[in-house]
Nucleic acid binder design. Structure first.
Lengths: 205, 205, 205, 205
DNA sequence: CATGAATGAGAATTCATTCAT
DNA sequence: TATGAATGAATTCTCATTCAT
């Protein structure tokens, strides 16, 4: 009975879903969760409000997916970088550099990371995302400590500090007029800051 | 009839204004901007909603004042600490320690400094607050660099990183079950992280 | 601090509440729960939709109150009638007569009784209402049985049947053109029906 | 191309139509009109929502047909029972018993006969259904009165009362835990009630 | 000047109906 | 002819802001 769902239709569905996610992400990035109403997302995606609910059961779940998808992508890249050969310090620097570079191109993630959500469900997801992020950095921290390259330090706190440091440093220059050359210096400074922070001398009592 | 505003009345007005600010701050600290509706603020302050609008022209401006006032206080304390005698490193450590300690008592307020803009007006104020914050840390960073205690580094980026680092590290343990003893270790770890970050060895070419 | 809520205001509040209930009742009676949207109730009561929520926490609770209030009034009257002196048969007839008479003037109650609920919360209240109704009739049935005036019968079923019988018989002539004289005959017929039903001869085996 | 509608196709169309009606009826019986959305009906019938509109011009007309068809079936059965040999009392008892028995198996459908109008169009049909129902009972009432078996009474009112009586009595025990044995007693009590009501002694002046 | 009831625009969500494929 | 994605009006409910008392 059921007509074969044509490949064309399949594609359009997937495309719509992606468009909704993209619109939500863009709106969140621009004006925070506040600006990303269902009406706004639908308008931006060129769909009706009702259509959104064919793809996502609720606003909260749409936002959760925006968040987790962004974090998952980022973490995949970071994990790959951290898995490369080299000293822990080199790999940490590479990871921070890579993250900062992408964040400057589209400060979406940094925002989603910080932005206070309107919804407890989304808030819960945000916390999980930050933990997943920290987890990646903890890996390289532990390696550096075990080889004696880094001084002993609570890896969870250091990881959180790293995430916070570059997030804060990156969110600022959202203004569209930041020149490209400044970006390079900013990235370098952040990378240096984090590298020193984890590898500097242990506190002398 | 009497247009002379009596001293008693003057005082009561100032007292009400203060109470509103206190209530707004407390509510934001407890549950973020989300929980701080005008109705809730008014109820907490023991006033009517209408009364709020006699002291503040809009919700946005009330929040802006909460933010700037909180930051001003904080900066005053930090400036005082940084102005004390001692090495730049010691004073930076003391400043971060002091900030972290207060932030742990009302975690959401620290959060609000970087949190989601409820309103473009509030967002503007938030950016200014972060800059003012950074400014304080820049002072001690410049001093440390000029005496050779810290390596050369872009003070604005380092300052932003410091703010970001401890904000991120502090926001996490919002869970109500964090034991007091853990707080001490957390603060120490953050202080160490920041101290290493600014004083660690310059990157070897 | 708090201004005395003037008697005038007190009165207006009570009046508004009553007006909302009246509007809800009228709309339910006219077109069932379906027609009684918050917007419609507010418009009918001459208030804004938001105002409704100052008096009732939700649509469901408003409807529950409409239902229970109507049933309470009715049951009070019926209990009074049933408590009068006379035989069980006389009192039952008087109760049915009284109910039918009021129902014909404003078929609100009969409607609310039958109307399919929009909401599980309202449905629960509706069931309780029907039970309370039946309870009243059970009283007089038990008395009649104990004195031998009525034959033995399951009082709960008989009570439900009585309620159903006159509800069904009354709901029909909602049309506004029913002449007054026909009402009298209708009431008499219903009363007779119920009287026979409870007092008729026991089934001969 | 071939405009001849083949017998096979004819059959499939009729089958689909029947399936839609069956699904709608089942859903209404289970959870009332509320649960019977077009989407739900389509899903249950194994068809698309669009297909529904090929067989029925609107949701209202589908429901009207469900109602009238169910009533027609019921009335056919009742008419058959009433047409059997025996006294009017015996036949009335048999009819009520039969109806009650089927209603207990799907209580919500009996309910739908008197329930809330989802739609003015459906409401109109509902009233007609009730009248058709009453008509059947009027037949046996008239017979009983003409033979002197029943006292004189307005047959239309009595018929309505009978319908109302057992509907109300049957709708109550919707709770899924009602034991089967209680059903028998309930049916018996309803039958007795109705029998007494129509055959009891005329009111003594 | 204080009050808090009232406003009303706007939010998320649902669902009968349509129409391109 | 069948499909089901898309529509969009309608629903309930929230909350910053106003204004009669």
């Amino acid at each position: 009975m059921a007509y074969q769902r044509s490949a064309l239709m399949q594609e359009r569905l997937a495309e719509n879903r992606e468009r909704i996610l993209r619109s939500a992400r863009a709106l969140i990035a621009r004006g925070g969760f506040r600006e990303a109403s269902i009406t706004a997302v639908a308008a931006d995606a060129g769909l009706s409000t009702g259509a959104i609910y064919r793809y996502f059961p609720s606003k909260a779940e749409l936002f959760v997916e925006v968040l987790t998808e962004a974090v998952r992508r980022e973490c995949d890249i970071l994990r790959e970088i951290i898995g490369r050969p080299g000293t822990a310090g080199q790999r940490l620097r590479a990871a921070v550099d890579s993250f900062a570079r992408r964040a400057l191109e589209g400060p979406y993630l940094a925002y989603a990371f910080i932005a206070e959500p309107t919804d407890p469900e989304v808030e819960a997801a945000r916390i999980l995302c930050r933990q997943e992020f920290s987890e990646v950095f903890k890996t390289v921290l532990r390696q550096g400590i075990s080889t004696g390259e880094f001084p002993r330090q609570p890896v969870d706190v250091s990881a959180a500090c790293i995430v916070g440091a570059f997030t804060e440093a990156l969110v600022r220059p959202v203004a569209p007029t930041t020149p490209r050359s400044k970006d390079e210096r900013l990235i370098e400074a952040i990378v240096d800051f984090c590298a020193r922070a984890v590898s500097g001398p242990a506190r002398q009592a």
